[in-house]
Amino acid sequence: MTHVSEPLSAPSAGTPCAAPRHAAAFFASPAALVAQIVPVVRAGLDRGVPVALALPPEIARAVGAALGGLDRVTVLDHPDDPAGRCGQTMAVRLAARLRELAGDGPVSLVAAHDSRFDGPDGRFWVELEAAFNVVLAGTASDLRCFYPEQPLHRAVTDGTLRNHPALVLDGELRPNPLHRPPREVLAEIPVPPPALLGPPDLVLVVESARLSDIRGRVEAALIGAGYARARAEDVVFAVNEITTNAVHHGAPPAELHMWVVERACVFEVHDRGRLDDPLPGLRPPVSTQRSGWGVWIARQTCSALHVWSDRHGTHVRMHTAA
């Protein structure tokens, strides 16, 4: 059995899709980075499109100083929390912010690598950029991503060269012959697993006939952890979708793990199935779509939802704040 959580009609990491104007540029030093960003921002403002910045704080400050302030742009933060360390969650969040800024109209996003989020091997950035290509497909977004010429991790450069349809080389925007669709990129450089959490507080075997019992157990645990009734119900709704996917699309045995942490609960669902779409549920379903709603809705309910796969099967981690 394979996981097929997205319908063929919806863009996904598994299908080639029209990429946004998504270009990468390389910098040698922080000063050179600022010097490259400023004209890109000015060009966006001159075109009259909303401009958003997703930059390390010190770079954003330097860009602000060069522009005489940041009041004409929107600065997007990169939280140092489970959401900020999950590339697919960050892509969904940033896409939502861009939609807030510009609706369906054009918008310019200027982003730069921040080594604080490299994780153990830099694959966060590969996942983030691949997810961007899914969530922003078909939009009028104009993305300029800046990466160091010599990052600490090779995956950062490898991913940059595969995820961007265009590169800025010698000051000129050029088509990138190394660009690949997200599925191919993630087959070569898989989505990284999240940091280990230690022994779970609760382990439940996931089977079709036990879904009701699992919902009851999870809801009781959430209420016990201090969740308000409505929030607990919504989290159960999300967890049920992921466990249902494991039963319906995955392969047994499947398990649900739960950790109770400060003001939050973390869930993981593991099964032995193969993930057909490496980044399911990144885009909102269209109203006529019969399937493919579950992971999208779970992503809206969880503060972070991370899907990854390895030789053991398919895994989903959900962070849910109380």
């Binding site: 979708e241 249902t244 399937s291 709603w293 579950g294």
Partner: peptide, 16 residues
């Protein structure tokens, strides 16, 4: 007491 995504989407589509 509970409806999952498939059930809720099914009700919406049935009506439509």
């Amino acid at each position: 007491r509970f409806v999952d995504v498939s059930g809720a989407v099914g009700l919406v589509h049935t009506a439509e």
